[in-house]
Write a protein that binds this DNA or RNA. Structure first.
Lengths: 228, 228
DNA sequence: ACGATGCTTCGGTTAAGATCGAAGTATGAA
DNA sequence: TTCATACTTCGATCTTAACCGAAGCATCGT
């Protein structure tokens, strides 16, 4: 015993339902205030405050003061990535919530995974990009091809700018609902931003689901045809 | 709230120190009895029994009766993979144990990560394989080259047999001590087995560390030279 | 300056669950 | 059959921490 990193600590941090709900709410990618997170966790602000202090002490969250509000976000990208991987693990093991609820279908169709598109549409997009040779998939790794770089430029994505960032361009992220990979990394983020900016899709206020407009959906499906 | 998989459940399962220690002990790859796991967790057998029942109900562990013993192992490969990823996450966040203990250096040098080699030597091996063009690394993905396939056959690894298995041949696994990738997948497993069978190395009884013999170490270092 | 809002800290209650002793079940050995 | 070993179940205790009311800071608007 007494070997290696202390996984019990982070396990305990995630293991409380209220904290888990607050973390899940942050998967939407938006910075949220303590009050908003309290609502997400179904608890009072006092209780939320102590939870948030613990999450911050555990380096899972960071806060940014702005006026009398305190905005909480993940301490860094790896937290969101890690949480999504837990969700995949949990879903694969049948650890689903008791009541699926009416929102589930929308979540499965398209949702925000911290900063990129996940769900059925996210998986479809990556599959389609691979099928047309825009992205090479080797094992779990993804690489943008020259061909793909040109295609994305045509859509209006400045691949060159993305490449200069420290963050990896393409990363695969395991989808809890589809149990297949979707596109993460700075390119995945850029694509989602693009959809939101052009009005093809919008995020909902209280949920992580992404709603496509009729026109946006048509364009999206045409741009990323089903594979086979 | 009430969205998606229930991450709180598995968080809680991992969040108890006794359970975390038992799970960590199983990272050694060997099936362990309830009594052994109780010792690893620092608790009595009664308590361990209830913990093990919970872990089994949560589909993290599976048990195999054999005479009057009950051997516990991970329910499947994904559990070990997942736990190592938590360790990487925890280590990156400074969640290390309070007292490093005397075993730590050995653990950092070479240890078993469920079924393959991790630690300094594990990272060195993968780096070396990539440097000589035996393995292609694209993003987080790894692929064995034709060149590499021939080299491994020379060492005595039946790559063809490995390819026929359902499990991916090469996978990268993030190392909590080195914070870099090492080789997992069926190839990683085969390489470790090879080292153990040829007597280059042996596993210790109570720890996850892997001890190289003087001769084995010489051979290993020659076979996988440091990159730069 | 004053009140309103957002959040944190303190104190006391309560509920969950980790723990172990003791008793019960199953398997193996003598 | 009888005893020993391996493990589980039961029952009771006890620690931990989640929770909220109340009070205390800090910041903004007026």
């Amino acid at each position: 015993m007494n070997e290696g990193p202390d996984i019990a600590q982070i396990g305990a941090l995630i293991g409380d339902p209220a904290r888990a709900n607050m973390l899940t709410a942050l998967m939407g990618g938006k910075a949220l205030t303590a009050t908003e997170l309290a609502a997400a966790g179904g608890i009072t602000v006092q209780t939320a405050s102590t939870h948030l202090a613990k999450l911050e002490a555990g380096n899972l969250l960071a806060q940014r003061k702005q006026g009398r509000h305190r905005y909480f976000t993940f301490a860094d990208d790896s937290v969101g990535k890690f949480l999504e991987s837990i969700m995949g693990f949990a879903a694969g093991r049948g650890h689903l919530r008791h009541k699926p609820g009416p929102k589930e279908p929308a979540l499965r169709k398209a949702r925000i995974c911290y900063d990129h598109l996940a769900g059925d549409y996210g998986v479809r997009m990556l599959d389609s990009l691979i099928a047309r040779g825009a992205i090479d998939a080797i094992g779990e790794g993804l690489a943008l091809t020259e061909n793909g770089e040109n295609e994305l430029k045509r859509i209006g994505i400045d691949v060159h700018a993305l490449k200069s960032s420290r963050r990896p361009l393409c990363r695969s992220c395991l989808d809890w609902s589809e149990r297949r990979a979707h596109l993460a990394g700075s390119l995945g983020k850029a694509l989602l931003s693009n959809f939101l900016e052009t009005g093809w899709a919008r995020r909902t206020a209280e949920s992580r689901s992404v709603i496509f407009s009729p026109e946006g959906e048509r364009q999206f499906l045409a741009l990323f045809p089903a594979t086979k």
